[in-house]
Design a protein around this nucleic acid. Structure first.
Length: 210
DNA sequence: ATAGGGGTACCG
DNA sequence: CGGTACCCCTAT
């Protein structure tokens, strides 16, 4: 190897290796406690959301841990789960004993617990639609409808399954048949529709009768 | 920021 | 020494 070569070659394996030796951090084994943090974080945030798990204060990982470290740990500890979630091409060489750990199953997007819509919420949703149309997040954000605990997306989903005839008025395919999506008349048409809106029961303030 | 693949320290 | 758990690099 001449001086000329040393100065000119840029991306050979050898030079990369030298850089690696300089930056490589000391090896930190995963203990049971830190592994439990990862498992809990996976149940809450889902597989693949490594940064979210790492930065969650509820899970105090070692100071030098990085999001990639979490991914690598999951990959070696639950090889079968990793294969299930990412495909067989992602499979890599692991100890057989680790395969038995897959009694546990993980999800990429953990499901929130289901909260059924009450009749009161449904009524409020319809009132909200009357006011805002399909601006679901505005309905959810308007205090008067008491739907602040719902996401706009959740309200859209509820409307779609509970009131398909209303929801159809907002779908693009339905719109494209007649008017442009920015046509202001679409809402007017919707407002004129004869669907029933029942007023939510209003709790009377405490009275002095009795 | 993450997925995927290559590299390496460490253990028996 | 072989094999693997942990670390690193990079395309997307």
């Amino acid at each position: 190897m001449t001086e000329l070569n040393q100065n000119t070659y840029i991306s050979t394996g050898k030079q990369v290796d030298n850089i690696r030796q300089d930056r490589r951090k000391t090896r930190q084994k995963w203990g049971a406690a830190e592994t439990s943090l990862l498992v809990e974080g996976l149940f809450e945030h889902g597989v693949g959301n490594w940064k979210k798990i790492l930065t969650d204060p509820k899970y105090p990982f070692g100071k030098d841990r990085t999001a990639v470290d979490l991914k690598d740990r999951f990959r070696t500890l639950y090889p079968n789960e990793y294969e299930n979630l990412y495909g067989k091409k992602a499979k890599r060489k692991t100890k057989k004993t680790n395969n038995d750990q897959s009694m546990v199953t993980f999800e990429k997007k953990p499901h929130r617990p289901k909260n059924k819509f009450t009749p009161e919420e449904d009524n409020s949703l319809k009132l909200g639609i009357e006011k805002y149309g399909n601006s679901w997040s505005k309905i959810a954000g308007d205090q008067q409808f008491n739907l602040m605990h719902r996401r706009g997306q959740d309200l859209r989903d509820r409307c779609r399954v509970a009131y398909p005839e209303i929801y159809a008025r907002f779908s693009k395919s339905r719109k494209s048949k007649h008017v442009g999506k920015s046509d202001p008349h679409i809402l007017k048409k919707f407002y004129a529709l004869p669907f029933q809106i029942t007023s939510p029961t209003i709790q009377e303030p405490e009275t002095s009768n009795i």
